[in-house]
Design a protein around this nucleic acid. Structure first.
Lengths: 347, 347
DNA sequence: TTGAAAGCGCTAACAA
DNA sequence: TTGTTAGCGCTTTCAA
């Protein structure tokens, strides 16, 4: 009777997943013994445990994540929110998160905001009851909304500081300083920053870092933007550049930098002879463009892993003081897209 | 008492998600009325329904996907299996799948095999009880293993034909024919195919397609491989090429083609003057390399969407004859990486 | 139109 | 060491 519910008209062809009761019957023990043998081997005689395990394997039994989730809140699922799956930055983060998650025997629920805060919120709301914790890698949510989620589940945020929520940050101050010093050493005395999305916390940090470092050296930083953090956004930024180009451009991320470079090159402008370009993140395509992109190497894979592990730790030990942010080191990698500025008649 | 279970020592700070009982109490109706008001508005008086909805909204109530899942098997979750999340091909597919899934009010569980069939199988086994259906985009599983999964949940496979399992295929025969004809028209009389992973079904299809088309024209196809379907794999393939280079190379996918191109260029070999290169899939970086890559445009986003919709359709209508594969059209896009072969002394 | 009750698969108490 | 029982949140009969 109840079997009919789950399969519908076609139930006959679809095999029912064996339950703990099926195993119990086949092994002639009680369901709780099966549960113990599988989850807590120490609390069952070795012989029984072995027997139950064998029977379970024969039947192809696997715990149904759903049921214990209902009782204990342990669903073995974690949510990962990204603003755009096709962005190579998140691709790396997802990879790291996935590695950590599968090592812990968990499962990853992916929520792609598709750059829409409505979709992001909707997806998160739907997934929330099913997951034990949340990693927000690239979120467009407000601090208040994040706080609300953090009130229900352990949350870890990437590249953003939110009061009371643990974060995995990058040492952007170091990165931007390294960029400015590199450009200064080459002879650049001013640079233009091509900004990313307004809702991006990292964007503000990067511009500020550039300004601070430039100020110390006596260099000038011009800001421009916001732009979509994509190759297309970079092309748009190139179109909006003044006729007298800056000698050096620093972009919010590599995708912008690449779009910018391609657009400028198609106008006959040479990189780095006419303009030096620097990106952020070191995504795979940064090494594919010609010239290869000078950029800030961010440990994206490690960030994804660290975030998942932090959520897992918060789950295991809810009392621990957790809200202190972790900062991961970055470094500048110099490639072909930066060089000495040409001497020019006027600025 | 039972509240303590879910939160642990820190439960005081973590808010409990409101349940249907909380709403029922607040609205002074029975739980079943709440359930009906939310899910089946027609079966409840308009006034009650409105009232319940208002109260639910005030409390911030959302259905817990877990609970109905236990009863009916409807968890509103779909699994998507990819062999490597960082591969831009899957990135696009994931994007398409995510779009379709979120439109249907579902949630996506991502399983990244990390190119390991063990991890893939483990992840799938863990996720299976929690999901209603499965999309296998890039799986290294055997036909038997796929059949087993298909026996438990609706499954749709991408780029692979598995008996009894519906698939979303690409018109590779057309694509490979277009490649061969394009190269033939340029003057190439033989080409080398750089193969992808052995476990890839598409790899065999592509090689066969090239051979068939070449045979009709009187051209020759040499095979090489298998290689990892990555940029690094392409570099490895370049190193293994004979001293006398072929005039035209067709790669299993764009990543291989790009790695190959970069490695050859770093050896001073010019593309397309010395070697013409063709890829498959048209991932974003194909337009970033210099020269841009001639390749087969695959509707990856649409494939992801179509796969999800097919699973959803199978869920809604389990009786429908579903195992007939769908073939999506592809087209050749000619860019800078292919050209006329130079006249040469000997082959 | 509404309420009461049972049960999905599992596990934590409690009892034996 | 093992079995029994109850209940997680929800939906779906069945009854009122």
């Amino acid at each position: 009777m109840t079997d009919l519910q789950r399969g519908g008209p076609d139930a006959s062809t679809r095999t029912k997943t064996p339950t703990i009761y099926d195993v119990a019957k086949a092994a002639s023990v009680s369901p709780s013994t099966v549960s113990r043998a599988l989850a807590r081997p120490g609390r069952v005689s070795a012989a029984t445990a072995a027997h139950v395990r064998r029977v379970a394997a024969e039947l192809g039994y696997h715990v149904n994540l759903i049921a214990p989730g209902l009782r204990t809140g342990r669903t073995s699922m974690l949510a990962l929110v990204v603003s755009d799956v096709t962005n190579p930055v998140y691709t790396e983060v997802i990879g790291g998160a996935q590695a950590a998650v599968s090592e812990a025997g968990y499962v990853l629920v992916l929520i792609d905001a598709q750059e829409s805060d409505l979709l992001e919120h909707g997806g998160l709301v739907r997934a929330l009851p099913a997951v034990e914790g949340v990693v927000l890698a690239g979120t467009r949510l407000s601090d208040a909304a994040i706080g609300e989620v953090a009130g229900k589940r352990p949350v870890v945020v990437l590249n953003r500081e939110v009061a009371g929520v643990p974060g995995i940050l990058l040492d952007s101050a170091y990165g931007t300083r390294a960029i400015v010093e590199h450009l200064w050493a080459l002879g650049h005395r001013s640079l233009t920053y091509i900004g990313g999305p307004e809702a991006s916390w990292a964007d503000g940090v990067r511009l500020r870092g550039l300004r601070d470092a430039a100020g110390d050296l006596g260099a000038v930083v011009l800001g421009s933007g916001p732009y979509e953090p994509t190759v297309a956004g970079g092309r748009a930024a190139a179109a909006a550049l003044p006729d007298v180009l800056p000698t050096a451009i620093v972009a919010y991320n590599d995708q912008l930098a690449i779009g910018l470079m391609l657009a400028l090159q198609s106008r006959g402008i040479r990189v780095p002879e006419d303009v030096s370009i620097v990106g952020h993140d070191n995504i795979a395509p940064a090494q594919i463009v010609n010239p290869a992109l000078t950029t800030i190497v961010a440990p994206l894979h490690a960030q994804g892993q660290a975030a998942v592990n932090a959520v897992l730790a918060a789950l295991k030990n809810p009392g621990a003081a957790s809200a202190k942010p972790v900062t991961l080191p970055v470094r500048l990698v110099v490639r072909g897209s930066t060089g000495r500025p040409r001497a020019r008649s006027a600025g």
